[in-house]
Design a protein around this nucleic acid. Structure first.
Length: 497
RNA sequence: GGGCCGGUAGCUCAGCUGGUAGAGCAACGGACUUUUAAUCCGUCGGUCGUGAGUUCGAAUCUCACCCGGCUCACCA
């Protein structure tokens, strides 16, 4: 839609002009439309907790916020100010303020302006807590109108492009992002108190790795070579475990140059943590406890409404063997197929199209995605993935061809990945070389050989469990949003010319 | 990328069997000293996403393009 993208210089039109006029009149009166400060006695959040009838209630409140509603009624006016998600009603009375002060409020203030007001609290006839204004001050003049007061801002495009308007007028939007912040802080708190230390590793990387994805490429001018925006921080965090940081984690943006849809954003936030002397089963346990802890911190309970379902993150979660999950769902036993083409044709019988030219692992993955994933509503660990799909994970000693790896699922959506980290450098080299074959087959997402990483591993790496959790998707699950754009403040959209 | 749906006033939406636009909120003027989606009277406000085409005449029909939503494909 062309209606709303900010046009910058064009501050005209008959909705803007009256505001500019008022701005000029404020200045003519020798007042500042943008004063330096206002001495608040209470935030709105605090004010709304008072009962005006209680004996210990202060006789003066000075509070401030954005004007969201004004009712002029001749010699008195009601208004609402909003701040930090809280609202307070103000009552302006000619008798209280005096003729000049009262009419200045009526003449010079618009919806959207910031205002500071001082006075006493009382309750209206209908019982609403209200501040009887004795003095007030313009704190900031607004030049553009707000979205409609009742319906708010509905248009999804404008909500994403001008998120500030969405935050002002839609309480639910605000709630989502407050919840998101709580998710991250609860995660940090849990990990910090479990002995993990938070680190920062490079966003710009000379080689990309740690995941299967196409990267964004950028030019590092001084070094005169291409760099990549990280698709993962895995290989750097493992170097740190090698360096003796036994429990590390990082929460950061990863970038993947791929499609955008309801569950994928090209830049998204990931938490990855690594714990020496543990394995993927320990990570499974960690995941359950971590997510349950976060859910309680955010929602007050381990359950969350998601679409038509009520998800319950209370441990223990379901556990589902990868091979068995496909066997039980479509009756195909992966162990019966060594060739990509065979499995692909068998999959097709079950109604699933795959790309056999990309190799067996890809076909297995596509079959799993199409058949098993849609059944995974309640939190579930899918474990023991085919080794060929897991170039950085250890092979299970009692299950050749399968990796000590799991992914947590909920709401038909993967939201993490974990394994017993491969720490045999010679085996790691072989795995990278297999990935090189996949690249030749046309798999644009296969992983690059990272000699420096192997060199680090050759110095000795302890047995280590690693876990990644997609923050955006976890927030989706805990806040009941089925679209990733609803949990990202400024989601990627095409630029408007 | 395919399919479907949408883009009309600042916002929320009508209008779409072709006759160049309406409502509510917002704004402006007026009435109103406990309103709260305040109410009542009056007024202003639109290159109907963009560009072509058909037509005497296009918001409306056709085509192309732009932007968004859903969906399928792709993508862990």
């Amino acid at each position: 839609m062309q209606t709303n993208p900010p046009k910058g210089e064009e501050l005209d039109g008959n909705l803007i002009a009256p505001r500019l006029d008022k701005l000029a009149r404020i200045r003519e009166l020798g007042l500042s439309p943008y004063p330096d400060q206002f001495a608040q006695t209470h935030t709105l959040k605090e004010v709304v907790t008072f009962n005006p009838e209680a004996p210990d209630t202060p006789t003066k409140f000075a509070a401030s916020g954005r004007l969201m509603r004004i009712n002029h009624m001749g010699k008195s006016s009601f208004a609402h100010i909003q701040d930090d998600g809280h609202r307070l009603q103000l009552y302006f009375q000619k008798d209280t303020l005096g003729e000049e002060s009262y009419s200045q409020f009526v003449d010079l203030f618009d919806l959207g302006d910031f205002l500071g007001a001082e006075g006493k609290l009382f309750k209206t006839r209908t019982g609403e807590l209200t501040l009887r204004v004795e003095q007030y001050l313009m704190l900031s003049k607004s030049l553009r109108p707000l979205p409609e007061k009742y319906h708010g801002l509905q248009d999804p495009e404008t909500r994403y492009r001008q998120r500030y308007l969405d935050l002002i007028s839609n309480k639910n939007t605000r709630n989502i992002f407050v919840a998101r912040t709580k998710v991250v802080s609860a995660m940090r708190h849990f990990l910090d108190s479990s002995g993990f230390i938070e680190v920062e590793t490079p966003t710009l990387q000379p080689l990309y790795g740690g995941a299967s994805a196409e990267p964004f490429t950028t030019r590092y001018r001084v070094l005169d070579r291409d760099f990549y925006l990280r698709i993962s921080d895995e290989l750097y965090l493992k170097r740190l475990v090698i360096g003796g940081l036994d429990r590390v984690y990082e929460i950061c943006k990863d970038f993947r140059n791929e499609g955008i849809d309801r569950t994928h954003s090209p830049e998204f936030t990931m938490m990855e943590c690594y714990q020496a002397y543990s394995n993927y089963l320990d990570m499974m346990d960690l995941t359950e406890r971590l997510v349950a802890h976060i859910a309680v911190h955010v929602n007050g309970t381990t359950s969350a409404a998601f679409g038509d379902n009520e998800l319950n993150f209370n441990p223990p979660w379901n556990r589902l063997d990868f091979r068995e999950s496909i066997l039980n769902t479509v009756g195909i036993d992966l162990d019966d197929f060594i060739e990509a083409k065979q499995l692909a044709s068998e999959s097709l019988k079950a109604g699933v199209k795959t790309n056999p030219e990309l190799g067996l692992a890809k076909v297995q993955d596509q079959l799993f995605e199409a058949t098993v994933v849609p059944t995974l509503i309640q939190p579930t660990f899918v474990h023991d993935f085919p080794l060929s799909m897991s170039p950085l994970a250890k092979e299970l000693s009692d299950k050749p061809g399968y990796a000590a790896r799991f992914e947590p699922y909920a709401g038909k959506m993967e939201f993490g990945n974990a394994f017993s980290e491969l720490n045999d450098p010679q085996e790691q080299r072989r795995r990278f070389l297999m990935q090189a074959e996949a690249i030749k087959l046309g798999d644009a997402e296969a992983q690059q050989l990272d000699e420096d990483f192997i060199r680090a591993m050759e110095h000795g790496m302890p047995p280590t469990g690693g876990l990644g959790i997609g923050i955006d998707r976890l927030v989706m699950l805990l806040t009941g949003n089925q679209n990733i754009r609803e949990v990202i403040l400024f989601p990627s959209l095409r630029t408007l010319e």
